[in-house]
Amino acid sequence: MEISDEKRIMEHCLNKTCNSTCTEIPYEQSKTLLVAVYSIVFAIGLPANCLTCLLTFVQIQRNNVVAIYIFSLSLCDLMYLSTLPLWIIYVQNGHKWTMDDIYSCKITGFIFFCNIYISILLLCCISVDRYLGLVYSLESRGIRGQKLASIIVCVLFAVVAGVHTPVFFMNDNQNCTKTCFETVPLTILLASLSFGRFLVGFVIPFTILIFTNYKIFQATKRSSSLTCRQKTKVKYMAIAIIVIFLICFAPYHAVLIIRAIYFMFNQDCPCPFENKIYPVFTVFLCLGTANGVADPIIYVLVSENIREDCYRSLRRLRWNSSKLNSSTDHNTESRKLETLKESEERGQTEEDKEITDSSDIQKTCTTGIDQESGS
């Protein structure tokens, strides 16, 4: 009995005829959740990030340094959100890439993974810039500037894109399984890359976020020039950044490193474990898409300047609308008055005519009576 069970497990370990892929991956378990989350994120994130780009662009014109990072973050999120319809179709089709062009899958996956790490690094840039602006406001006055921020953003985009360029030259299992960037089980190369992504793409940025936001909180707590409301705002802002970072990126990287460690110690038969952890991995990967909705909420709605611009724009739009309505009402009233005046004039004319006619009739009647009296 034990030999039979072991043989059965080994048969399910790897499909040797299909380039060493795992079979019986439970794609259907998380299908509904993935489609729902992707659809909600796309519906909310697309207009939210478009509005963020518009408002932060106005702030860039006013020499706001942080606005450059937020603007770049929104552009990055928009690039990823544009690929979500393809991911929705992919999940609906049972994790099968139905497009004939293999490079469409590679480009979509390239944008997805670039978005994750560009977003993480830009969050770090925003926190570091706030840290320098609050803790070292005088010393950093000559360092912080839009030119340096623009250079940093360009370097980040170039480095992250360069690191992920090899995806275009990697041979995956798509020709056999029709999946897109879902190599199950991992290879030694992918497992090694997972360790690097976990360290450089999560641990180090998370350490930077913790350090900078903690120092920001300490500086505002000791400050005597800030009001209690401003201190509370800075405190909640720091907490929100950490919480969003943990929700969006921590679960994915935790499962990523667990898969890599397990594969390194169980290279002969990793599939039973992969079959069990796959639904959890896809759900945690899906949480990363929530970053596209969380970024505008944190960095736009909390910003006083951008929020005031939004309110100002809404007031201007409302004023123009009311002005247009009042102008329309005025024209309507004018037309009504003109119509009423014309009707009154016609009525007066008819009355005059009636008076004239009645006087003529009266004259005729009087003449007739006089004639009868004379006769």
Rank of each mutant, 00 (worst) to 15 (best):
E182P: 01
I152E: 12
G142W: 01
P185S: 07
G94C: 02
V167F: 00
C124Y: 10
S104P: 00
T179P: 07
S127E: 06
K147Y: 13
N93G: 10
Q174C: 09
F112N: 03
R130Y: 11
V184T: 13
E139D: 09
A149L: 05
G196K: 13
G142D: 11
V128C: 10
I102H: 14
S137V: 02
A158W: 07
F198K: 05
I188T: 14
C180F: 00
F168A: 04
V153A: 10
T98W: 07
A191R: 01
D172H: 08
V163F: 05
R141W: 01
I116H: 00
S194M: 08
I107S: 01
I118L: 06
Y103T: 13
F112E: 02
S140E: 06
I102R: 15
M99V: 11
F113V: 09
V153Y: 08
D101L: 08
K96V: 04
M170E: 13
Q92P: 00
G145F: 05
I151K: 15
G201W: 06
I188S: 14
D100N: 15
W97N: 02
C114A: 10
H164N: 08
L186E: 04
L122V: 12
T183S: 13
Y103N: 14
S194Y: 15
L190Y: 13
I204S: 09
L134A: 07
L132E: 10
G133E: 10
A161H: 00
G109Y: 02
D100E: 15
L134V: 13
I89L: 15
I102P: 01
F110D: 01
I102E: 14
T187H: 05
N115G: 09
G145Y: 06
S150T: 15
I143S: 12
A191E: 08
A149W: 07
L156F: 07
F181I: 08
S140R: 01
Y90A: 01
G94M: 04
A191P: 05
F169Q: 09
F112L: 03
F195Q: 05
V153P: 12
E139F: 01
F195A: 06
I107W: 02
L156D: 09
T108G: 00
I126L: 13
P185F: 06
G94S: 03
T177G: 05
S104M: 10
T98D: 13
L199T: 12
C124T: 11
V203G: 04
F198I: 03
I116S: 06
Q174P: 01
Q92W: 15
L123I: 11
L189D: 11
A161E: 03
Y103H: 14
Y136I: 02
A191W: 11
I188D: 12
F113C: 02
H164Q: 03
D100R: 15
P185M: 08
S192Y: 12
T108A: 01
L122W: 04
V163A: 07
V184L: 15
A149P: 05
N171S: 11
T179I: 06
I188Q: 12
A158Y: 10
V203L: 15
D129V: 09
